[in-house]
Every structure is written in structure tokens, then in C-alpha cells.
Design a protein around this nucleic acid. Structure first.
Lengths: 221, 221
DNA sequence: CTAGTGTTCAAGTGATTAATTGAATAATAA
DNA sequence: TTATTATTCAATTAATCACTTGAACACTAG
């Protein structure tokens, strides 16, 4: 009884870890952290087929990490627990500390140049009110519309060149994206710095910002 | 290049999660959190065969979670990173929040009776110096010998009856074991309370206590 | 050197997995 | 009702997994 309780518990914990052990599911969770979405939309965003995405979603549901509701004939999935984001971030931290490959990949994204430390959310929040920073939201427009840092300009990565001329060359620029798994901000910072701009990355992304209770602006709430 | 970098990163994160997705490996990690150990000793503690345990250890090593050194003809494994423990604890927290089964199992361990909240490490550490608490270490003797809270009495679960007569019936008793995955302390508290003693569980186990920088006594350091 | 101990490797089995395809099911609109 | 859209199910494939068995390897003691 006691040893079966122990192994039952271990199986529960392993089930959560298993839910996070497929890249496809990590992508889905990152997407759901931006906003709730239907299966087809998620499939489009992640590049999975609809059926495959649905199956992954059901595995996530079995683990209790996502829940769904019906809206007409669409099934809208959402994260059940913001703690899952912490779990994913810790996963990233442990991977970064223990696997040299991770740092190697991240260095490659910086394009060879030196990249300054990411700015913390606290610090950015404090400077927000001063208006002394230009904030760039490097995500697709629909995710920006679902919520963004007040005052942030939206620009997709492929769209950066369009917005660069309008930036104050002397201002400090802070770029953010979906979160710790997202490389948009890394790439944006590398591109901006290559053009001589003073750009840094924000630690984490919008979901982490929201989770810290910091202000978020949505197009229609 | 960018999308391949993204998927390469996701695969790295998934690799860590995968390492944690088997109950056998969670058991091994919990053991290694107590003390470093050779393959055979780990196999004995976890109930795995030696070969199987060795294979799991190599999977953990591939993920970077454990490292090894040779000592004579024995290969001694250890955790590489205490952050892994945080990851396991968060895994437990998310499982507890999202899966009703977990709470159900834990309630079963309490034996139907009411169990008080676990006492935090800070609070116990503060009371330690006052000497107003009896601390019980519910782990096998070898793990106790490798390190324990100063002043703690060692008693295996099967051994509880032996030690109970010597306990002050009016004192507050705090029991701890290997950590958040370990159910020894749960069971010990249930048994002690059934006998009318004022027992509570310590939050986390010895590894977490040590990780907080709190004092640990080892038989031979 | 040989014998003994502790660990790893290699091959094989059964179970589980991710992903594909196409059919089945819900809910809505005409 | 039928048609449409969105999602899930069922059957399939190839790959990977945990675990077992028995042999191979590394190191130590004699």
C-alpha cells in the first residue's frame, strides 16, 4: 500500500514531465501562454497538422496542463495553470546550465556580436513610467492585439526594417517576444545592434510580464 | 537557420523533460539528492536491476543532470545541479494543482485523520536554536549518516515503535525524510498522530534543507 | 598473471510514441 | 433536412522506450 502509493505519485509526476517532453507540446504551450486558441489556429501557428495538434492537446489535457471550452463549433484551449510557465522556464534554466549545446545555439543567434544582459521586468517596469525606453513587441500582430506592454510598438521580425527609421537612434530599445523559449527578441536585438542601435532583450516575454502583475494592454478585452 | 535554432532549443528543453518522465529516473534522482552513490547501491535502493539502473543513469547523464567519477572499480554518480531539485519540486506542485489523483493519494496516506500544515524550513530553523522541538529523521540509517538536521533522531518507518516511548508526549514533533517525493514523513506523521502525539511534517526534505544553506550534520564529512 | 567485483554494452521483447490518413462526430447555418 | 466548419477518433507506420538477459569491459587484490 505504501510502496504502491509512492509509485503512483511518481507516475503522476512523471506524467507531467512526459507532457513536456515533446517539442511540439512545448510549442503549443508557448502559444497558449500568449492567448487561448482553437485547434486549427494552434496547428497553423505551430506548423502541425490539425489532427496531430489535437492529439497533442489531448495529451496535455490528460496531464491537466490545458483545459478547453466550446465556442460555437470551435473548441478553445487554454492553460489551466500559470505555474506551468514557471516549470517551462525552469526547464530552460536547467537546460542552459547543464547542456553546452543550448548556450552554443543562443550564441549563434546573437550573430557573433556581443549582446548585453537582458533587462529584468522590474527594471523595465520602473522605467516605463519615465518614458525613457522604446519597447518593441516582436510578435505577430494577433498576439500583440491579444495583449502587450503599454506603449510597445509591434513589429514582426521580417517587418523590422519598416519600423527602424522611425526609432530614435539615441533611445534605449527593449525588445520582447513570447517568452523564454522564443527567439524572436534575440534575433531582433542582434539585427538592431548590427544597425548601431542600443537594443536589449527583456527577460522573459509577455506571459511572464503578465504573470508578475505588470500592466498589459489588450485591443479588446 | 532561425527556425532550426528554435527547434534545436525546443529539443534541448524536451530532453530535460524527457529525463524526468520516467518514475525510475525520478527515484534515482531523489536518491542522489541524499548522497552520491554507486550503481549497485542505487539499484538496491530503487529496486531496479543493476543493468537497468545503469542505463537510466546514462540517460540522466546525457541530459546533463548527473555526473560520475570513478572510485576504484566503482562509478559514483552525483547530481550536477541543485536546480534539478527545484525542477522536481515544481513538477510536484504542478501535479498537485492539476491532477486530482495526487491529492487523493496524499489524503490516503494521512490515514483518514486530519493532518496539520507542513512546517516551513525557516520556521523550524528558528525554533532549532530554542530546542523546543523534537526532530525525527525518517530515513534509512545510511542516508541519515550522510547528513541530517543537527539534533534530529533517526528512525526508519518500521522502527517508529521503538523510538516512540522515548519521546516527550508534550513536545512538538517534526518529521522529515528525503524530500517532496518521499512519503516516509507523511506516513510517520500519520502514525504518530494516531498515537496522540503532536506531530507535523517538515516542508521538503533534507536536500531542500541543505540547499537553503541550513546546518547539516554528517557522520564523517 | 588470475580471480573477483562493479559497471557497461549489445541484442531482443513488448509496450508506447509521434505522425499520417481518412472517416466519424458536433455544432451551426441555410 | 443538407451542407459547412471544426474537432476528434481509428487504423496504420516507423521510431523509441523500458526492461531483461548474458556477455564484455575496467579496475583491484591476491
Amino acid at each position: 500500500m505504501s510502496s504502491s502509493a509512492k509509485s503512483a505519485l511518481l507516475e503522476e509526476y512523471a506524467l507531467i514531465a512526459h507532457a513536456l517532453s515533446a517539442p511540439a507540446r512545448l510549442m503549443i504551450l508557448e502559444q497558449l501562454a500568449q492567448m487561448e486558441r482553437g485547434v486549427e489556429a494552434l496547428a497553423g501557428k505551430t506548423g502541425l497538422t490539425t489532427a496531430n495538434c489535437s492529439q497533442h492537446l489531448q495529451q496535455l489535457r490528460r496531464a491537466g496542463l490545458v483545459a478547453s471550452r466550446r465556442d460555437g463549433n470551435a473548441v478553445i484551449y487554454r492553460l489551466t495553470d500559470a505555474r506551468t510557465l514557471e516549470l517551462m522556464e525552469l526547464l530552460r534554466i536547467v537546460a542552459e546550465r547543464n547542456r553546452a549545446e543550448v548556450e552554443h545555439i543562443l550564441r549563434g543567434l546573437a550573430g557573433g556580436g556581443e549582446t548585453p544582459e537582458a533587462i529584468s521586468r522590474d527594471v523595465l517596469a520602473a522605467r516605463l513610467s519615465e518614458g525613457s525606453v522604446t519597447i518593441l513587441d516582436i510578435r505577430p500582430a494577433d498576439e500583440y492585439a491579444a495583449g502587450h506592454i503599454p506603449g510597445a510598438l509591434n513589429a514582426a521580425l521580417t517587418d523590422l526594417d519598416r519600423i527602424i527609421p522611425s526609432l530614435d537612434p539615441d533611445a534605449e530599445i527593449v525588445a520582447y517576444c513570447r517568452g523564454p523559449y522564443c527567439i524572436y527578441a534575440h534575433q531582433a536585438v542582434a539585427a538592431l545592434r548590427k544597425r548601431g542601435l542600443n537594443a536589449r532583450r527583456l527577460e522573459g516575454g509577455l506571459p511572464e510580464w503578465r504573470e508578475d502583475g505588470l500592466p498589459v494592454l489588450a485591443e479588446r478585452p
